[in-house]
Design a protein around this nucleic acid. Structure first.
Lengths: 194, 194
DNA sequence: TAAACTATGTGTAATATTGTTATAAATAAA
DNA sequence: TTTATTTATAACAATATTACACATAGTTTA
């Protein structure tokens, strides 16, 4: 491998891993650690990485880089923003659940403690106030989040057409809350996520 | 072999391999390394390639690689990963388009330069090889990406049920490629994104 | 034919890369 | 704390690569 290619790949590796050990990079490319140190020199000068004892780290702010993976307050699984349900509380805190299923449960739990709740259109990912959202349950599509699955739509038309294709029922906010609680026989199944 | 032919082939080799070692080129064409250096001179002056110690590298790919650009290579809009279409190229580079619409166009452009292409299930966001994907066009749902809109599904059943609810047609990879090109009357509309 | 030009190879000095060593610094262990 | 281990840095040497000058062979042109 050409030196230039190795240097590029070293940089790519650090960028994708956030931090790397010098010894690992040395083994990976089958060169001495001194060579890795030398490969790193320009990146350090540019301010791209900083050296730690035994390794290198991206200088970029860790927070802004890593996906601050929050977990669902109900089922504790990691959250895919696309399906998320957000609850804005009286104490100005914001809670997030992995999907409308957990969201409706949490919403019912906190009840009047919730000032506002928002979810996202399943198709277009637009933001919708939960009270104006159309919920689809019992369809034949399984996204891989919680069961019974609850999908959210901004437009009733979309929800109804979805049901036409994939089965299930369309609910308003209040109907959906009741339906979820009714369906749940006391337990909450935590499924694998994407 | 005529010098001019060799020079052409040297350039082609670099273009297809992204980077090459001077020593390998020298052996391949049975000329001295000095001759290869001289063959490279005009390419360097043109800015097509740059020399690294022991080899040459394409300059343009370095650009697209350094600025890991998250914009669609076709329509230049920012990319929502959910809809993205990824093209893995022969030179190990990866290109990304904002949606299957742009993806199919790019795939057709590069043709055999594409080793593999992947897209994501519209519902579950699972990864699918483009050749095995089912494409839905002309449905009544508009996501806000490019028109004519192309949605991608892993399962034919999902695609068909989607069409049942939202109209449109289901296409295989080859059919979709043709359909997109046929629909496009020579222009590519750049639409607002989410 | 002779001059001019092109293509190519060779030799050499300058430069780049790399690994090894020794020494200093940082960290871990006692 | 002190000691041991690991890592970093600098200096050196070996090797690889490059750029340049020059020589040679072939081709074109007047």
């Amino acid at each position: 491998m050409l030196p230039a290619d190795r240097r590029k790949r070293v940089e790519d590796l650090i960028r994708s891993h956030y931090s790397m050990k010098i010894s690992d990079l040395s083994k990976k490319f089958n060169v001495s650690e001194m060579t890795i140190h030398r490969d790193l020199k320009p990146l350090i000068d540019e301010g791209v990485v900083i050296k730690t004892f035994g390794g290198v780290t991206l200088t970029r702010d860790k927070q802004s880089n890593e996906t601050i993976s929050e977990e669902c307050v109900i089922c504790k699984s990691s959250i895919n923003v696309r399906m998320a349900y957000r609850l804005i509380l009286q104490n100005n805190k914001i809670e997030m659940t992995c999907c409308a299923h957990c969201g409706l449960i949490r919403h019912r739990q906190l009840d009047s403690g919730v000032i506002q709740a928002i979810c996202y259109d399943f198709f277009r990912q637009t933001t919708i106030s939960a009270h104006l959202t159309w919920f689809v349950m019992n369809s034949s599509v399984h996204i891989g989040c919680c069961q019974p699955q609850v999908l959210t739509f901004e437009w009733k038309e979309h929800a109804e057409k979805f049901v036409k294709g994939f089965g299930g029922n369309v609910y308003s906010f209040n109907q959906a809350t009741e339906a979820v609680l009714h369906k749940m026989s006391g337990c909450h199944s935590k499924k694998n996520r994407l």
